[in-house]
Every structure is written in structure tokens, then in C-alpha cells.
Design a binder for these strands. Structure first.
Lengths: 357, 357
DNA sequence: TTGTATGCGTTATCAG
DNA sequence: CTGATAACGCATACAA
């Protein structure tokens, strides 16, 4: 096996100095055409590639972005990653992914690991456990170390950084109003516990839509799911909860669910109870994933544009990274991060399918 | 903003040498308790973290694994990543993800980028375009550079490396035989073009099952989908093709599809044509993803155990990485990679749901 | 017990 | 035009 070739080896082989080789390969005009040709040919022959690690050490930049998400087996998050990856690559950055698995501890461990020189900045979405604990010191510590962060989707005011969020509130309003316009009289909501910011915002949107249409909110029509339980038999538990919910509220004729799993599961349960969709009950979900598209009937959803979120996040981060460029002459450099953090709101969009009239 | 603190700065601050600090922090017994205490306290106070990059350069190891997959918005691949991530983290490795987006060129670019010092080894699944071109020089070049590769799922004999594959052939046999046992008389197959190895193997399994049960294969009952087309209106095209297929073959009473999208779409089309499942037609898919679980009726599938594939791949890679450990005294070292490459076959399993009797 | 020197691969600076 | 040297951050063999 040929070990990767280095400048030093080329230099020795060709009996020149390392710096000559370095310069020749960067096509410096300091070097004679002859020598350049010789060195470049040799380098090509041996398939020379500069060692990124050495460059990172020297430049104090790794040109890679750390992504930290709660879960990868999740359509929304993979869509975001794809978006990040796309612009990152286009702008010359690599992407490294860490999974918190919704755990506070794992989030911290991953973060410290990556912050230890592997990455230039983070794009992340906060884990459920962290949101519950409301302990954000690790984010602030990272920022203090000069590593910028961009948060998306699950964000929090306590951390000063750029943020990209979905307009959860407005999306929920739109969805609920669609049901109202479609003549639903008893619109139910299936949501998560309040500590998940997106769940809370969507719930608020639902309430707001009712209110501004002079419909009194009925607490009985709101089902809050505790999804901290283990995932094993999650589905069965979910189905049972929803079944109970439907049985005790037989008048429900419209349903807004804060994610597509809840929506699809609800449709399944409804069908089991002999209801047909959208005739007896109209359903709208949040998150436009595979499930929505291929469910029966296909699900009307509020699309979050995950890929766009990823792209915008990456742009925000890289912009900031390049703004604190250390390469500039010091009188031009701007090492202090800007304090004006940006909060981008990505508009949602209702994708109409068969589950609404 | 506090810049990350280094050994050098601590040394200066405490008026000792860099090596003293280094030793003190690794709790070397060469250093007096007094000095150690002082230095450790100071380091803790300033939240010292060693710079991975410097360590990588020194150790010629990055302790990170490069994953290269065709697509991330794909349940199977994210499951595999989760598996890889899990064992990688447990064994002290990080994970970095590159997306080829099914493109030959992007696969190469990503590969070269990561191979340039960022990673110790690759775990990858080959892009469609690469399989089509049958050009695998970049894999071999990487291996020649001393960077081991583990391939999973879409693998190829032309590259000498460890491989982890699903038993596609046997899985397809099992699925087809299940349909036969369930008394289907005209079993159809929806598959991909032959250059995708997994599609080919599954097709072979289907044929084998028919043959060993003395059923003559009918070429008309095999639908090959060309999925190189752009994804935009992919679904509609797919639906139309399947609809035609069903119309010209009205006797089909059993269907095996090589992925869950084809299976779910076929069920949708079947329903549209007035067929009920599983009464009129039984359906089995491959790949146990979200769609299968939540489809209506839920889909019987051949599960690939993606997470297990990921875990095994990571173990294979790390084992090999540690086998070529450079830290050992040279008379013990084993720098030449072992030539006996392992091909692990992960057994499939049929998950029975509502789409079969 | 502590410090000095060296090297990992690269580039920039300055001297020849 | 070419080469020697320092520096990035760290660990370690060796010297004091």
C-alpha cells in the first residue's frame, strides 16, 4: 500500500526544497517554468493531494460545518441536511453530522467533540431533553469560544445566534382556518407537550385561528401527546390515545395535527371507527413528508420547506464565518462577531391533497 | 469573544513550559502534585480542550469515519447512518457524511475531499451513475492510499474491500414463496433496471422462487422501472406505468415490489382500479420503512435491518482501522492491510402486515 | 521534577 | 529563482 505522498517526499525525490515544491504546486511565479513543470508532473503522477488537516491547523479553519440534530431517521431533518449540504458544498465547505438522539448529554458530548477543532461552526436543532431542562450553557460556551451557531426549527431565545425558523404559528393558523372555511364545526387538535417550542407555537396558532373566527376553543378537543416515552410501542399507545379521544368527542369533523405521524395515525383510527375522510372528518397535518404524500387518502399538510431551511441556515453560517475572516489584514479584519443576529422566518405553504374537501 | 485556549497560553500564563502543561494535563507522574494541581485547576477554569486537528496531524489519525451515500432523504440510508453513528460513537469515532446525490462526479469530489486527511476510512454505498458507468477507479485509488473502505448494500466485486450486504436474493425468494404459499397464481414483479445490483438480485430471487416451485415465469408479469428520470413528476409516471401494467395483466393476484415506494404506489393504483387488498391482490414490498408501516392497508415487507447493516459496517471498518494501528512497536505493527476481505450478509426478515392474507 | 527539541504537513516570510 | 526557517497545537524522547 502506498502511503499518501507529502511535499517532503516529493522534495526529496526531486532533490529540491519543500518550499520550492509548495510554491511550484501553487503555481507561484517565483519558480521557473522548468522546475514547475517537473514538480507538477511528478505530483500528478503520484496523485499528490494536500493534507487538509495540516491546512486546518495552519489556517485555523477547517472548512467544515457541524450539524447537530436530534434524530436522523426523520424526513424533515434529512431534508434540512440535504439543503445544508447543497450550499455548503457549493461554497467549499464540508459537513459533519452529529446525532443527539434527543438526549441532553449526548448533545453536549457531540458538541464538545466537534468544537474541539473539527468544525468552524454549528447548525443545530435542540434536543427535546435540552428543551425540557432549559439548560443552554453549552451553546453559549461554544459561542464564547468563537464558534458561531445557527439554530433551526427548535430554537430558543436564551441563546444569541442566528436562527432559521418555520412560521409555525402562521402555518397553524392557515391550517385551522382552512378547516373553518371548509365548514368544520368541531375542530380538534392533536399536539405535543408544551415544552417543544414548535408544538407550542402550532397550538397557539390553532387557538388564534379559532379566536379570530369567533369560535370558542374547547379544551376537550385538544389532545396533548407525551412523546418522551420510548419508541418501541409508541404507535400502539398513540393509536389508543387517539381512539379514546375520538370516542369521547364524536362530534369532531375537522382535525389539525402538529406532525404527519399524528395526522396519518389519526386517519387510520378514524377509518377504523367507521369514519370516512374527508366526508366525515377533514384532516390537515404539519410537515410535508413521505407519509403525507402516500397516505390513503393522501394528506393535506402544511409544508415546512426543510431543504430551504437547510440552505438558508448554511448561508447564514457561512456568511458569518467569512465575515470574521482572519486572513484579512488586521486593519480590515472584523474579528468580533456581529451582534445583530438574524432570525429568518421561512413561510409555510399548504399542500392540498385528498384529506380535505 | 475568548479564543480557544491552548497549551502554550496556559504555559505562558503559569510561567512553565508547554511540555509541563501537557504532562500535567495527562496526569503524568513526572510532574509534582503541586504543579499538576495548579495547572489542572487553571485549565479547568479556562475550559481547556485539546485541539483535535493538532492531534490528528500528530497521530496521523482523525478518529472520524466518512460516510458516503447517494441520498439522505431516504429511510433506509438514514437508518444505516444511525447504526454507524451508534457504534462509531461508542468506539470513540466521529462520523462525517457526504452525499453523492447518485452522481458519479459528486461521489468522486466528495471522496477526494474527505480522503484528504479528514477521515480514517469510508463506509459507502455506490451511486447509481457509478454503477451504470462501472467505473470504480476512485474506490481503488482511495484504498491504495491506505484508506480502507467498507461498502454496504450497493456493492461491487471489482473493489477489494469489506462488504455488508442484505441477502437480497434470499429475501426475494422468501417474499415470492410467501405469495405462492398464499395461493397466488399470477405473481407479478415490479423492479428496477438491472444495473442496480440489488434490483437484479431481487429479480433473480423472484425467478428462482418461481422455478423451484415449478411455476413458469411469465415475462409479461415483470415490470422494470427506469428510475434514472428526474424526480419531479416521478410519481405520476410511476402510477401510469403501473396502471398500464395492471390493465394489460388483469389476472395478477400477487405482487412483489423491490422497494416500498413501488409497493405502496401499486396498492394505490390497484385500489383505484377497484381491486381490494389483500383479497384480490396480495402485495409484498422490500425495505421496511415508514411508508410500509403506515400505508393502508399496512404493507407486508422484507425488512433489511438497516441499523444492523450500519452497525456491522462500522465495526468492520473500525476493526480494520485498529488492526493497522501505527502505535504498536514496529516489530508488532501490521501496516499492510489484511487481504482477506469480509463479506457480511445480513439476513432479511418478513414483517407480516395487512397486505397479505 | 521540569524543560528543550523534534516532528506531524503546510505555507509565508525572508535571506540568499 | 530557490531554500531555510518559523509557526499552527500537541505529545514525547531526551537532556538538565
Amino acid at each position: 500500500m502506498k502511503r499518501k505522498i507529502t511535499l517532503k517526499q516529493i522534495a526529496k525525490e526531486l532533490d529540491v526544497s519543500v518550499s520550492t515544491v509548495s510554491k511550484a504546486l501553487s503555481d507561484s511565479k517565483e519558480i521557473s517554468e522548468d522546475t514547475k513543470q517537473k514538480i507538477q508532473a511528478f505530483a500528478k503522477l503520484y496523485n499528490y493531494r494536500p493534507n487538509n488537516i495540516a491546512l486546518s491547523l495552519k489556517n485555523r479553519k477547517t472548512k467544515t460545518i457541524g450539524i447537530l440534530i436530534p434524530e436522523i431517521v426523520h424526513h424533515f431533518f434529512s431534508t434540512v441536511i440535504r439543503g445544508i449540504e447543497r450550499v455548503a458544498n457549493r461554497r467549499g465547505y464540508n459537513v459533519i453530522v452529529g446525532l443527539s438522539n434527543e438526549s441532553f448529554t449526548k448533545e453536549i458530548i457531540n458538541m464538545e467533540m466537534l468544537a474541539g477543532g473539527s468544525i468552524d461552526g454549528f447548525i443545530l436543532s435542540i434536543s427535546k431533553e435540552t428543551m425540557l431542562k432549559q439548560d443552554y450553557h453549552h451553546f453559549n460556551a461554544t459561542i464564547d469560544q468563537g464558534i458561531p451557531i445557527v439554530m433551526f426549527d427548535r430554537v430558543v431565545d436564551e441563546v444569541d445566534c442566528d436562527k432559521v425558523i418555520v412560521d409555525d404559528f402562521k402555518g397553524a393558523v392557515k391550517a385551522t382556518e382552512k378547516l373553518i372555511v371548509n365548514k368544520c364545526k368541531n375542530i380538534a387538535l392533536i399536539t405535543t407537550m408544551d415544552y417543544i417550542s414548535v408544538g407550542r407555537l402550532r397550538t397557539q396558532g390553532y387557538l388564534e385561528a379559532l379566536k379570530s373566527n369567533n369560535i370558542e376553543a374547547n379544551p376537550n378537543l385538544i389532545l396533548k401527546i407525551d412523546d418522551t416515552l420510548d419508541v418501541e410501542n409508541h404507535i400502539e399507545v398513540l393509536e389508543n390515545e387517539i381512539e379514546q379521544f375520538f370516542k369521547t368527542n364524536p362530534k369532531i369533523d375537522g382535525l389539525f395535527a402538529v406532525n404527519e405521524l399524528y395526522a396519518v395515525t389519526a386517519m387510520k383510527v378514524a377509518r377504523k371507527l367507521g369514519l370516512s375522510i374527508p366526508e366525515d372528518m377533514q384532516v390537515i397535518g404539519f410537515t410535508d413528508g413521505v407519509l403525507s404524500k402516500h397516505a390513503t387518502p393522501s394528506l393535506t399538510t402544511v409544508s415546512q420547506h426543510g431543504q430551504k431551511i437547510g440552505e438558508q441556515s448554511a448561508n447564514l453560517l457561512i456568511d458569518r464565518l467569512e465575515a470574521m475572516d482572519y486572513d484579512k489584514p488586521s486593519y480590515l479584519a472584523n474579528n468580533e462577531p456581529k451582534k445583530d443576529f438574524i432570525k429568518l422566518v421561512i413561510e409555510t405553504e399548504i399542500i392540498e391533497r385528498e384529506s380535505t374537501k
